[in-house]
Design a protein around this nucleic acid. Sequence first.
DNA 1: AGCGTTCTTGCGACCAGTTGCAACTCTCGG
DNA 2: CCGAGAGTTGCAACTGGTCGCAAGAACGCT
Lengths: 148, 148
Amino acid sequence: MPLPETQIPGRLQAYFSERGIRITQQRRAVLRVIETATKHLDAGQILRKVQRVDASVDRSTVYRTLQLLKRHGLIDELDLMHIRGEGHYYERKMNREHIHIACLRCGKITEFVTSTYDKLKQQVEKDCHFKILVSRLEVGGYCSACRQ
Amino acid sequence: MPLPETQIPGRLQAYFSERGIRITQQRRAVLRVIETATKHLDAGQILRKVQRVDASVDRSTVYRTLQLLKRHGLIDELDLMHIRGEGHYYERKMNREHIHIACLRCGKITEFVTSTYDKLKQQVEKDCHFKILVSRLEVGGYCSACRQ
DNA sequence: AGCGTTCTTGCGACCAGTTGCAACTCTCGG
DNA sequence: CCGAGAGTTGCAACTGGTCGCAAGAACGCT
């Protein structure tokens, strides 16, 4: 086996070992796929990419790893307004929470950061006496190109 | 059969006949369940309530009716931060869009209306040159009682 | 009211995601 | 380096949601 362990751990794997969460071959593969993803992936796509590295990895392992990451707040789960089916999409959590804007016609996903979103969350915390841990704002409609 | 057709149509049914969408026994039952709901229902709960009126109604009919309502913008679909499982919840669309606040510990769902949310949406439309048709803001965390 | 078109339904098969369980494997201490 | 114990995996069975299709129902027209 040509040294797969010596790869750069990556943030997610580092988080795991710091917290004493076990790192297995299967989890390493899932983390790697998520960390190197360039676009929003759904569970099925992640599974397929993982199985290209290790074909024996089961669906349930991928789903369980995604749940684990979600519970630790390391990934965000998105619906993207159900543009394609009912499934969820995943992305690694960014420094700044952003809005997902989905064009219902061309399917393009845009991300948008604004301080108004932060202000809105602060207002919710204050007015509702609520401690926010996760939040998700998704918007569906038509982008400028599709609206013509 | 004691005059089931003579019931007050209700808003959803009225919308259907105005638009020439066929009204069937099954759809009538689903609309009735949604219109008389006092809390957020998931598809399974709606199915069970519908089947108490007409046991022959199939799952797929309920799901298709929900999709139909969603497409016409008559109901909103919510995840409620996946407090219980992966399923979705449905509520009939209100005059004013509101934020759903889900306590991750006690499961309580609070609804919150604020003009900041409207301002945020306006800003997205302006800054992103995007026409918003639907939006959804869900927040998860701890309510004041559970935070102690 | 009867008829025909068109839409809807129920069914069965399928895909996606979850769960219980026995076998396995990771990690830590010796 | 090895063994024990806890945690993880793959499997199989199950639930939730979707889809294609043939039978059935709704509505407009006469």
